[in-house]
Measured scan of single mutants.
Amino acid sequence: SEIVKHAEEALERGEFVRIEHNGRVIEIRNEEALEELRRWVEK
């Protein structure tokens, strides 16, 4: 997914991403959060 790709690229640069999706906000700061995002987006 485009969202996950964006988050992965930001993590590689040492940045973090805040994503709003279906009214929820998730902050991607590490691999664990990235995995959570993947599960969340796939639903």
Score class of each variant (00 low, 15 high):
Ile3His: 05
Val25Phe: 10
Trp40Ser: 04
Lys43Ala: 14
Ile3Tyr: 06
Glu9Val: 07
Arg38Glu: 02
Glu12His: 15
Asn30Val: 02
Glu27Met: 09
Leu37Pro: 00
Arg18Met: 12
Leu37Trp: 04
Leu34Cys: 02
Val17Phe: 12
Glu36Met: 10
Val17Tyr: 12
Asn30Gln: 02
Phe16Ala: 08
Glu8Leu: 13
Glu31Ala: 14
Ile28Gln: 00
Leu11Lys: 01
Trp40Thr: 03
Val25Pro: 03
Glu20Phe: 14
Ile26Asp: 01
Ser1Phe: 14
Gly14Val: 02
Glu12Lys: 15
Leu37Cys: 05
Glu2His: 10
His6Ala: 15
Arg24His: 11
Trp40Glu: 07
Arg18Asp: 04
Ser1Thr: 11
Ala10Arg: 06
Glu32Arg: 09
His6Glu: 11
Asn30Arg: 02
Leu11Trp: 08
Asn30Leu: 03
Val25His: 06
Arg38Ala: 05
Glu36Gly: 05
Val25Lys: 04
Lys5Asp: 04
Ile28Arg: 00
Gly23Gln: 03
Glu9Ala: 14
Glu15Trp: 08
Gly23Trp: 01
Glu9Ser: 10
Val17Pro: 09
Glu32Thr: 10
Glu15Ile: 10
Asn30Cys: 08
Ala10Ile: 05
Ala7Tyr: 03
Val41Pro: 02
Glu35Ala: 11
Arg29Ser: 11
His21Ser: 07
Glu42Cys: 13
Leu37Glu: 00
Leu37Asp: 01
Glu12Leu: 15
Glu36Cys: 05
Glu2Gln: 13
Glu31Arg: 15
Glu2Lys: 08
Ala7Arg: 01
Arg38His: 04
Arg13Ile: 04
Glu31Phe: 14
Val25Ala: 04
Phe16Gln: 07
Val4Pro: 02
Ser1Asp: 11
Arg13Phe: 02
Glu9Asp: 11
Glu2Pro: 07
Trp40Ile: 07
Val4Lys: 01
Phe16Ser: 09
Glu36Tyr: 09
Phe16Asn: 06
Ile26Ser: 02
Glu2Ala: 12
Val17Gly: 03
Glu42Pro: 01
Trp40Val: 06
Lys43Glu: 14
Glu36Trp: 15
Leu34Ser: 00
Arg38Phe: 04
Glu8Thr: 14
Gly14Glu: 04
Arg18Ala: 10
Arg13Lys: 09
Arg18Val: 15
His21Val: 15
His21Tyr: 15
Leu37Arg: 00
Arg29His: 12
Val41Lys: 02
Ser1Tyr: 15
Ala10Glu: 03
Arg13Val: 03
Glu2Ser: 13
Glu31Pro: 12
Arg24Ala: 08
Glu35Ile: 07
Arg38Lys: 12
Ile19Val: 13
Glu27Gln: 06
Val17Asn: 02
Glu2Ile: 10
Ala7Met: 04
His6Arg: 15
His6Ser: 10
Gly23Tyr: 04
Asn30Glu: 04
Glu42Phe: 10
Glu12Pro: 02
Ala7Thr: 03
Leu34Arg: 00
Arg38Val: 06
Glu42His: 09
Glu12Ser: 15
Ile3Asn: 04
Arg29Gln: 08
Val4Ala: 04
Glu12Asp: 09
Arg29Ile: 15
Gly14Gln: 05
Phe16Cys: 12
His21Cys: 08
Glu20Tyr: 14
Val41Thr: 05
Gly14Ser: 04
Ile26Cys: 08
Glu12Trp: 12
Leu11Asn: 01
Leu11Glu: 01
Glu27Ala: 07
Glu15Lys: 07
Lys5Glu: 05
Gly14Lys: 05
Val4Leu: 15
Arg13Met: 05
Glu36Ile: 10
Glu9Ile: 09
Ala33Met: 13
Ser1Pro: 12
Glu36Val: 09
Glu32Tyr: 09
Ile3Gln: 06
Glu27Val: 13
Arg29Cys: 15
His6Lys: 15
Glu42Arg: 07
Leu34Val: 06
Arg39Gln: 14
Asn22Met: 14
Ile28Ser: 00
Val25Trp: 12
Ala7Val: 09
Lys43Ser: 13
Ser1Arg: 14
Arg13Thr: 03
Arg18Asn: 07
Glu32His: 10
Glu12Gln: 15
Val25Ser: 05
His21Phe: 15
Glu27Thr: 09
Ala7Lys: 00
Ala33Asp: 15
Arg29Phe: 13
Glu12Thr: 12
Asn22Leu: 12
Leu34Ile: 07
Ala10Lys: 06
Ile19Thr: 03
Val4Ile: 15
Arg29Pro: 04
Ala33Val: 05
Ala10His: 07
Glu42Gln: 11
Arg39Gly: 09
Arg13Pro: 00
Ile19Gln: 01
Arg24Glu: 08
Ile28His: 00
His6Gly: 08
Phe16Lys: 06
Gly14Trp: 02
Arg38Trp: 04
Glu15Met: 07
Ile28Gly: 00
Leu11Phe: 10
Val41Met: 11
Ala33Ile: 06
Glu36His: 07
Glu32Gly: 08
Arg29Val: 15
Ser1Lys: 14
Glu2Phe: 11
Arg39Phe: 09
Glu35Gly: 06
Arg38Leu: 06
Glu36Arg: 09
His21Gly: 01
Ala10Cys: 09
Lys5Thr: 07
Lys5Ser: 06
Glu12Tyr: 12
Ser1Met: 13
Arg18Ser: 11
Glu31Gly: 09
Lys5Ile: 06
Val25Glu: 06
Gly23Thr: 01
Val17Lys: 03
Ser1Ala: 14
Trp40His: 05
Ile3Met: 11
Ile28Leu: 04
Arg39Trp: 10
His21Asp: 04
Glu8Gly: 08
Glu35Phe: 05
Phe16Glu: 05
Glu36Leu: 10
Asn30Asp: 14
Glu35Thr: 07
Arg24Tyr: 13
Ala7Asn: 01
Ile26Arg: 01
Glu27Leu: 11
Ala33Thr: 12
Phe16His: 09
Ala10Asp: 01
Lys43His: 13
Glu8Tyr: 11
Asn22Trp: 11
Phe16Leu: 09
Arg24Thr: 09
Leu34Met: 06
Ala10Leu: 08
Arg24Ser: 08
Arg18Lys: 13
Glu15Tyr: 07
Glu31Val: 13
Ile19Arg: 00
Val25Gly: 02
Arg24Cys: 09
Glu2Val: 10
Glu35Tyr: 05
Asn30Phe: 03
Glu27Tyr: 13
Glu32Lys: 11
Arg13Tyr: 02
Gly14Asp: 04
Leu37Ser: 00
Asn30Gly: 08
Asn30Ser: 12
Ala7Trp: 04
Arg13Trp: 03
Lys43Ile: 14
Asn22Thr: 04
Glu32Ile: 08
Ile28Glu: 00
Glu31Ser: 12
Glu36Asp: 08
Glu35Val: 06
Ala33Trp: 05
Glu9Trp: 08
Arg39Ile: 12
Arg13Asn: 06
Arg29Glu: 09
Ala7Phe: 04
Glu31Met: 14
Arg24Ile: 13
Glu32Leu: 10
Arg13Cys: 04
His21Pro: 00
Ile28Phe: 02
Ala7Ser: 03
Ala7His: 01
Glu8Pro: 00
Glu20Trp: 14
Glu42Lys: 09
Ala10Asn: 03
Gly23Phe: 04
Arg39Lys: 15
Glu8Arg: 14
Glu8Asn: 06
Gly23Ala: 01
Ile19His: 03
Glu36Phe: 09
Leu11Ile: 07
Glu2Asp: 14
Ala10Pro: 01
Leu37Met: 03
Ile19Gly: 00
Glu2Asn: 11
Lys43Tyr: 14
Val41Ile: 13
Leu11Gly: 01
Arg13His: 05
Arg24Asp: 05
Ile26Val: 08
Glu32Asn: 08
Arg13Gly: 03
Ile26Glu: 01
Val4Glu: 01
Glu9Arg: 11
Val41Asp: 02
Glu12Ile: 13
Glu9Gly: 07
Lys43Trp: 14
His6Met: 15
Leu11Gln: 01
Val4Ser: 02
Glu15Cys: 09
Trp40Gly: 03
Arg18Cys: 12
Leu11His: 02
Glu20Pro: 05
Arg24Val: 12
Arg29Tyr: 12
Arg39Glu: 11
Ile26Gly: 00
Glu27Phe: 13
Val17Ala: 08
Glu31Thr: 12
Ala10Gly: 05
His21Gln: 05
Glu27Asp: 11
Asn30Tyr: 03
Arg24Asn: 08
Ala7Pro: 01
Glu8Met: 15
Arg39Pro: 01
Glu15Asn: 07
Glu32Asp: 11
Val25Leu: 09
Ile26Met: 10
Glu15Gln: 10
Gly23Met: 02
Phe16Gly: 05
Glu2Met: 13
Glu12Phe: 12
Ile28Thr: 00
Arg13Leu: 04
Glu36Lys: 09
Ile28Lys: 00
Arg18Gln: 09
Lys5Arg: 13
Gly23Arg: 00
His21Met: 15
Val17Gln: 05
Arg29Asn: 14
Arg24Leu: 14
His21Glu: 03
His6Trp: 15
Gly23Asn: 06
Ile3Ser: 05
Ile3Thr: 06
Val25Met: 07
Ser1Ile: 13
Arg18Thr: 15
Lys43Phe: 14
Ile26Phe: 15
Lys43Thr: 12
Asn30Pro: 01
Gly14Arg: 03
Glu8Cys: 09
Glu2Cys: 14
Ile19Glu: 01
Ile19Lys: 01
Glu42Ser: 11
Glu8Asp: 02
Ile28Asn: 00
Glu20Cys: 13
Asn22Asp: 10
Ile3Pro: 03
Gly14Asn: 05
Leu34Gly: 00
Arg24Lys: 13
Glu8Gln: 15
Leu34Gln: 00
Lys43Leu: 14
Ile28Met: 02
Glu20Met: 11
His6Val: 13
Ser1Asn: 12
Val25Arg: 03
Leu37Val: 03
Val25Cys: 11
Val25Gln: 05
Val17Trp: 07
Glu32Pro: 03
